[in-house]
């Protein structure tokens, strides 16, 4: 069958099998290997991408189900060479060790900050509760998200001041 999916703003039309999972479509058909493939059972969350603005576990979504929809992956976070604040937060606060869970963590946490720009530690932990860091670096991940929240708020304030002046 043929499927047309928009990934990070680019429209792709591909011939696929109905049973192809979204995670394999992204990695193998499109070559976007930023999205990781982990447990295959919707437990670990490293395959999280956005579909129509909502985080989903792409190992449990058919590529065909994404037809006509907009997908955003970790490759769609940075603006050219400029990292998204959530990526910068992970860099500044050592939010990754081996990096395997990172793409899923980044996508979930970006979504959290979009919905809730000033999350508490509890809210961050709840948001990533469907994801596993095999290095158990949760404390650093929480700090990274807080870093992003604080710096985004500061950046917004600076921008407002600049506009006011």
């Amino acid at each position: 069958m043929q499927v047309t999916v928009t990934v990070n703003g680019v429209e792709y039309t591909k011939e696929i099998e109905g049973r192809l999972l979204l995670v394999h479509f992204l990695r193998d058909t499109l070559g976007l290997t930023g999205t990781h493939w982990g447990c295959d059972t919707s437990n670990c969350g490293t395959c999280v991408v956005w579909m129509d603005g909502e985080p989903v576990k792409s190992c449990t979504v058919l590529a065909a189900m994404a037809g006509g929809r907009e997908v955003r992956t970790v490759e769609g976070l940075a603006n050219g060479a400029e990292l998204d604040p959530i990526q910068e937060g992970f860099r500044q606060c050592h939010g990754l060790q081996c990096g395997f869970c990172t793409p899923g963590m980044l996508m979930t946490c970006r979504h959290l900050l979009d919905k809730n720009p000033d999350p508490t530690e509890g809210e961050i932990r709840e948001a990533i509760s469907g994801q596993i860091c095999r290095c158990t670096g949760y404390s650093s991940i929480v700090r990274s998200v807080r870093w992003a929240a604080v710096h985004e708020a500061e950046a917004a304030e600076t921008k407002e001041e600049a506009v006011a002046q």
């Binding site: 919707s42 969350g45 985080p55 989903v56 576990k57 979504v61 979930t108 948001a127 509760s129 469907g130």
Partner: peptide, 9 residues
Amino acid sequence: IADPIVRNR
């Protein structure tokens, strides 16, 4: 029930 990401679907 499951986790927030699964609950989205």
